[in-house]
Amino acid sequence: MDKIDRRLFLKIASLSILGVTAGSLLEVVNPKDFKDNSIEPLTKLKAKRWAMAIDLTAINEAIINNCINKCHVTHNVPNLRDKQHEVKWIWQEKYSAVFNEGDNDFNLTTLYKNKNIPVLCNQCDNPPCVRVCPTKATFSRDDGIVVMDMHRCIGCRFCMAACPYGSRSFNWTDPRPYIDKINEEYPTREKGVVEKCDFCMERLDRGELPICVEESKNTIIFGDIGNKNSEIYNILSRRTFLRRKEHLGTRPQIFYLI
């Protein structure tokens, strides 16, 4: 058959339209929308729930700077100097700014007040960013990692308004000219999409720990909090920790050991 006549064309066209709409309709009624269980991580390192504990008693600025640097180089994070337009996956803030609820003049704040501590995406168990995303461009994996599909993101920045931690960065401009040396192993991004830390899921796939954990001289502990025999589970059951804005019900998976 070398010619598509009008009747055949209409048949194909209407069937394809039906197919596309039916697919979308199915997605609408599907209750699994809240958590996409269909995404099976093809990872060498597996966990029920990944979590991270940062030991504030041991970590120092030199270590933090090294973690930031290695993370940003690995993930092609651009180096925009302008504070309002920079992209950050992990960075440092004053302890008193990170835990800024109320006025803790004494106790913890006096100990750590002027100390810089690392902050990154909290990989919430109940993430507001995932709840608000209109395209499922950001979603929770079964192992708890909140990831971004930067090919689907429309750049509406609803997730940035929803994140109570200021952990999300938007590419206000083309990031590529601001990457000192592009790491060919990892994709770069375009302008107009949101990005953030994803617990180095590409490294977990290869059986490696997140880069910041590797560079942290054992001051950052990473592991499966769903496994009672894991190191992180043990440490968290023994030691006192803080989580950022716990009262918001987001269930952050970054624990600050104090």
């Binding site: 929308d33 809240f34 709840r131 395209t135 429309i154 609803f158």
Partner: peptide, 13 residues
């Protein structure tokens, strides 16, 4: 990519 909102309808948003 605005039509992604229709292509991937997300009732929780």
């Amino acid at each position: 990519r605005v039509l992604n909102v229709l292509l991937h309808p997300t009732p929780n948003s």
